Lab assay of single mutants.
Amino acid sequence: MISNAKIARINELAAKAKAGVITEEEKAEQQKLRQEYLK
């Protein structure tokens, strides 16, 4: 099960992506976390 901290990070990265200020490194982290969440 995914931790609350990881869910919070997913939401934080989603907000950054929506604002258009996300880095390529953060995009990769976001994809990794989303895949983990979906498992």
Rank of each mutant, 00 (worst) to 15 (best):
M1Q: 13
M1Y: 07
M1G: 13
M1D: 12
M1E: 13
M1V: 12
M1N: 14
M1A: 12
I2G: 09
I2E: 11
I2A: 09
I2T: 10
I2R: 06
I2M: 13
I2D: 11
I2S: 08
S3V: 07
S3D: 12
S3C: 11
S3R: 06
S3Q: 09
S3N: 09
S3L: 05
S3M: 06
S3W: 00
S3F: 02
S3A: 10
S3G: 11
N4G: 13
N4Y: 02
N4R: 12
N4V: 13
N4K: 14
N4H: 14
N4E: 14
N4L: 13
N4S: 12
N4A: 14
N4Q: 14
A5D: 13
A5V: 11
A5L: 05
A5C: 08
K6W: 03
K6M: 15
K6T: 14
K6I: 15
K6H: 09
K6G: 06
K6L: 15
K6P: 06
K6C: 09
K6Y: 04
I7T: 06
I7W: 04
I7S: 07
I7D: 04
I7A: 07
I7G: 05
I7K: 07
I7Q: 08
I7F: 02
I7L: 13
I7E: 06
A8L: 06
A8H: 08
A8E: 13
A8M: 08
A8R: 11
A8F: 02
A8Y: 02
A8V: 07
R9S: 02
R9A: 02
R9N: 01
R9Q: 03
R9F: 02
R9D: 02
R9K: 05
I10W: 13
I10G: 04
I10F: 11
I10A: 06
I10P: 01
I10L: 15
I10D: 03
I10T: 04
I10E: 04
I10C: 14
N11Y: 10
N11D: 08
N11S: 08
N11T: 08
N11F: 10
N11R: 14
N11V: 14
N11M: 14
N11A: 13
N11E: 11
N11G: 09
N11H: 15
E12Q: 08
E12D: 07
E12S: 04
E12N: 04
E12Y: 03
E12C: 06
E12R: 03
E12V: 05
E12F: 03
E12K: 04
L13Y: 00
L13M: 00
L13S: 01
L13G: 01
L13V: 01
L13A: 01
L13D: 01
L13C: 03
L13T: 01
L13I: 04
L13H: 01
A14R: 11
A14K: 07
A14P: 00
A14N: 12
A14L: 10
A14Y: 05
A14D: 13
A14F: 07
A14G: 05
A15Y: 04
A15E: 12
A15M: 10
A15W: 05
A15R: 11
A15H: 07
A15P: 00
A15D: 09
A15S: 09
A15G: 07
K16H: 04
K16G: 00
K16R: 13
K16P: 01
K16F: 02
K16T: 01
K16I: 04
K16N: 02
K16L: 10
K16Y: 01
A17T: 07
A17K: 05
A17L: 07
A17F: 04
A17E: 15
A17V: 06
A17Q: 12
K18Q: 08
K18P: 01
K18W: 04
K18D: 11
K18L: 13
K18T: 08
K18V: 11
A19W: 05
A19T: 08
A19Y: 06
A19N: 12
A19R: 10
A19E: 11
A19C: 08
A19L: 12
A19I: 07
A19H: 07
A19M: 10
G20H: 05
G20M: 04
G20K: 05
G20T: 03
G20S: 03
G20C: 07
G20A: 04
V21T: 14
V21E: 12
V21G: 06
V21H: 10
V21M: 11
V21W: 06
V21Q: 13
V21F: 07
I22A: 05
I22V: 04
I22D: 02
I22E: 02
I22F: 03
I22G: 01
I22W: 03
I22Q: 04
I22K: 01
I22R: 01
I22T: 02
I22Y: 02
I22M: 08
I22P: 02
I22S: 03
T23F: 00
T23R: 03
T23Y: 00
T23P: 00
T23I: 01
T23M: 02
T23H: 01
T23S: 08
E24H: 06
E24P: 11
E24L: 08
E24F: 05
E24V: 10
E24Q: 09
E24I: 08
E24A: 10
E24C: 10
E24Y: 05
E25I: 08
E25G: 06
E25V: 08
E25K: 07
E25F: 06
E25Y: 06
E25D: 11
E26K: 00
E26F: 00
E26T: 00
E26S: 00
E26W: 00
E26Y: 00
E26Q: 05
E26A: 00
E26H: 00
K27M: 13
K27W: 09
K27G: 04
K27E: 12
K27R: 13
K27V: 12
K27Q: 10
K27F: 10
K27A: 11
A28H: 10
A28M: 14
A28D: 12
A28E: 14
A28Y: 09
A28L: 14
A28K: 13
A28P: 00
A28S: 08
E29K: 01
E29R: 00
E29L: 04
E29I: 03
E29G: 00
E29S: 01
E29V: 01
E29W: 01
E29N: 00
E29D: 03
Q30S: 10
Q30K: 06
Q30I: 13
Q30P: 00
Q30F: 15
Q30W: 15
Q30Y: 15
Q30A: 15
Q30G: 06
Q30V: 09
Q30E: 14
Q30T: 04
Q30H: 15
Q31W: 04
Q31R: 13
Q31L: 07
Q31C: 13
Q31M: 06
Q31V: 12
Q31A: 14
Q31I: 13
Q31N: 14
Q31D: 14
K32G: 06
K32A: 11
K32V: 08
K32S: 08
K32N: 08
K32W: 09
K32I: 10
L33W: 01
L33V: 03
L33N: 03
L33Y: 04
L33K: 03
L33P: 00
L33G: 02
L33M: 04
L33F: 01
R34T: 15
R34L: 15
R34G: 10
R34P: 02
R34S: 13
R34H: 15
R34N: 15
R34C: 15
Q35F: 08
Q35S: 09
Q35M: 12
Q35G: 11
Q35A: 09
Q35T: 10
Q35I: 10
Q35R: 08
Q35Y: 09
E36A: 04
E36T: 02
E36W: 04
E36G: 03
E36D: 13
E36Q: 05
E36N: 04
E36L: 05
E36P: 01
E36H: 05
Y37Q: 14
Y37H: 10
Y37I: 15
Y37T: 09
Y37S: 10
Y37M: 14
Y37P: 04
Y37E: 14
Y37N: 08
Y37V: 12
Y37W: 14
L38M: 11
L38D: 15
L38S: 08
L38A: 12
L38W: 09
L38C: 13
L38E: 15
L38T: 09
L38G: 09
K39E: 15
K39V: 11
K39I: 09
K39T: 15
K39Q: 13
K39L: 07
K39A: 15
K39S: 14
K39C: 13
K39Y: 06
K39F: 06
